[in-house]
């Protein structure tokens, strides 16, 4: 009965009046992006602006994607994102486990020290980090692009919150059986935290795929550009050709949308992980 009263009717009248315009507004740019991507270069310059292409021009995609080495951009982005996600998941789980489960002197101080990194705006670290990889000769290499991003304090924090909620009984049983800390971590804790790890991985992936400023300054050559930086420079080259730009934009949006629809349940998961219930 309760569920019927509380919203089984779906959107109430007031709610619908608020939410439907928002939903339409959210969708329009995406649809317009696709529509423009299929239009003729001069068709878009007519008035009134056409909303659907008179005749679809799918060849825009091929033309736009070969105008710059987009295959290379996607490869670089994939390597960058996957390496960073793997690194963040490994370092975050290890550190979070230590903070959540092991007792050692100064643990809370060290944890606060870790969290203090979250207080510092990224741009403060950006300049020294760039100068460091520049001194190492790592500008415009995968090493420079990836190395600075391998640890996410936010990820450590989220996983720690999650590990704290796991029951200790299983670990204690494993310890009684003579398992070392590493075995407990690897055989007991990790299998229990797969959903949390998946959530962390999915969000880290989206964050890295969308990251712009660091790849912009850490790379120079076309081979090392990520998709975000690539389409931004495409914008500069084909300033007036909107169908090409929109075709490139659609291709940039697609991979993340696929990830979103495949892993949709993990996207809500993180927000519950924050302990905000």
């Amino acid at each position: 009965m309760r569920s019927r009263r509380r919203g089984a009717s779906g959107l109430g009248l007031v709610g619908g009046a608020l939410v439907l315009p928002l939903a339409v507004t959210t969708l329009v740019p995406f649809l317009y992006m696709i529509a423009t991507a299929l239009m003729d270069e001069f068709e878009v310059l007519r008035y009134p602006p056409p909303l659907v292409p008179a005749q679809p021009h799918p060849e825009n995609f091929a033309a736009a994607l070969t105008a710059l080495p987009f295959d290379r951009f996607f490869l670089t982005t994939a390597i960058f994102s996957v390496c960073v996600v793997a690194g963040q998941v490994v370092t975050s789980t290890m550190a979070a486990y230590a903070f959540a489960r092991l007792r050692f002197p100064g643990r809370d101080h060290v944890f606060v020290l870790y969290l203090s990194v979250l207080m510092v705006p990224m741009v403060v670290l950006l300049i020294p980090r760039f100068l460091i990889i520049n001194a190492l000769g790592w500008v415009d290499t995968y090493a420079g692009l990836i190395s600075t991003e391998l640890v996410s304090v936010w990820g450590i924090f989220l996983l720690r919150q999650f590990f704290v909620t796991l029951p200790r009984d299983l670990e204690d049983a494993a310890r009684l059986d003579g398992a070392g800390e590493w075995t407990v971590f690897w055989r007991v804790v990790l299998p229990l935290s797969k959903p949390a790890l998946a959530t962390l991985a999915v969000f880290a992936f989206v964050d890295q795929w969308k990251s712009f400023l660091w790849p912009l300054i850490a790379t120079r050559s076309a081979e090392m550009r990520v998709v975000e930086v690539g389409i931004a420079s495409f914008h500069g080259l084909y300033y007036t050709n909107w169908p090409y730009q929109m075709a490139a934009a659609v291709t940039a949006v697609l991979p993340l949308l696929v990830v979103y629809f495949v892993a949709q349940r993990y996207f809500v998961g993180r927000i519950q992980l924050t302990g905000l219930k």
């Binding site: 959107l11 939410v19 439907l20 928002l22 939903a23 959210t26 969708l27 740019p29 995406f30 317009y32 992006m33 423009t36 989206v206 795929w209 969308k210 712009f212 998709v227 975000e228 930086v229 389409i231 931004a232 914008h235 909107w242 730009q245 929109m246 490139a248 934009a249 659609v250 940039a252 949006v253 993340l256 949308l257 990830v259 979103y260 949709q264 996207f267």
Partner: peptide, 23 residues
């Protein structure tokens, strides 16, 4: 509707900027 409203979060930031610039 919730799925739709969440879409911008998983869209490429530069692509969003480009389509808005066009609009």
């Amino acid at each position: 509707v919730r799925t739709i409203l969440f879409l911008p979060y998983v869209a490429s930031v530069v692509a969003i900027a480009l389509v808005w610039q066009w609009m």
